[in-house]
């Protein structure tokens, strides 16, 4: 098997390694370097300014606003998405027998996840449209006119209107993830618990939750990392408007780079966001560690 193996290994690895080094590794390294420069896109005018970009970032109110939005979403998105996904998964599995129409629900719930975020964003922009959207006109039609709001145009609701779309799009994915986990829990566990008189809630808390923990943990980390990005949905739906009320860090960074040509500053924002993402992932991994239950 080893005869002349390097004649295979080297040419087989070369294309992927080359592309990966040039278009992935180099840009990341270069972004870190750029964050120490003042640079408006013309190479002659690239001046080293040490940590100035980071200091400036610390005092930038617009950055803080965007960051605080990410922080709020970091709490709300995992909580709501996972609760809803768990609820649907529990209803769906029904203690091993499966609900009627299971295949239909599965196909429907999962669908938004494979849909392009741009389509979803544009579509919901019109659903939320103050006059011609189905949300407000529907509310008016059933006599709830006072609940009709200028969703994306209002500083109070814009961020949460976008968050609702993010949840809407991803619940099905996490439901399928949890269903897979729940179906692997032996049915006898529930049977035994029921004979002992355990309530449905007790069964959920003492059997489902611990045995599903590995899946929940993955979901928390995935959603948390996604909550620190959200560039596309915000860029498409609101561009951070009105008055930055729905801005997030990734979109703020894009604006600094490609609207204001402050490439060094934008790189510093990117590096900060990367560090935050990394720390968060590690923190969550440690906090969510539990003894793995074998069954």
């Amino acid at each position: 098997m080893n005869h002349g193996k390097y004649r295979l290994i080297i040419p087989f690895l070369a294309p992927a390694l080359l592309l990966y080094a040039v278009f992935v590794l180099y840009p990341y390294a270069s972004a870190v370097k750029n964050s120490f420069y003042q640079w408006r896109g013309v190479s002659a005018n690239k001046t080293y300014i040490g940590l100035d970009n980071y200091r400036r970032l610390w005092d930038d109110d617009n950055f803080r606003i965007a960051l605080s939005h990410n922080a709020q979403l970091l709490i709300v998105l995992p909580l709501v998405t996972i609760s809803l996904a768990m609820l649907f998964a529990a209803l769906f599995v029904q203690g091993g027998r499966g609900v009627r129409g299971a295949d239909f629900y599965r196909v429907v719930f999962f669908f938004p996840q494979v849909m392009s975020v741009v389509i979803v964003g544009v579509l919901w922009q019109y659903i939320y449209h103050p006059n011609s959207g189905i949300l407000n006109s529907g509310l008016r039609a059933i006599g709830l006119a006072s609940f009709a709001k200028p969703w994306l145009g209002s500083a109070q609701y814009a961020l949460w209107a976008v968050a609702a779309v993010v949840i809407w799009q991803s619940v099905g994915f996490y439901m399928v993830l949890f269903v897979a986990g729940m179906q692997s829990i032996p049915w006898d566990f529930y049977e035994a618990a029921r004979l002992d008189g355990a309530s449905r809630f007790a069964q959920f808390k003492d059997i489902t939750l611990p045995l599903l923990w590995e899946n929940i943990r993955v979901a928390i980390i995935y959603i948390a990392i996604a909550a620190l990005d959200l560039f596309t949905i915000v860029a498409v739906m609101t561009e951070g408007k009105p008055n930055r009320a729905s801005d997030v860090v990734a979109r703020f960074m894009y604006e600094q780079a490609f609207t204001n040509s402050m490439f060094g500053y934008a790189s510093a924002i990117g590096v900060v966001l990367l560090i935050l993402t990394f720390c968060l992932a590690i923190l969550l991994l440690i906090l969510s560690r539990r003894e793995r239950l074998e069954f």
């Binding site: 180099y26 750029n34 780079a257 790189s267 990367l274 993402t277």
Partner: peptide, 17 residues
Amino acid sequence: AGLMFPVFLALVPLFFL
């Protein structure tokens, strides 16, 4: 490692690259 990095960090260098 590439699975961990968010794409937006690489955007500026990629643009010039």
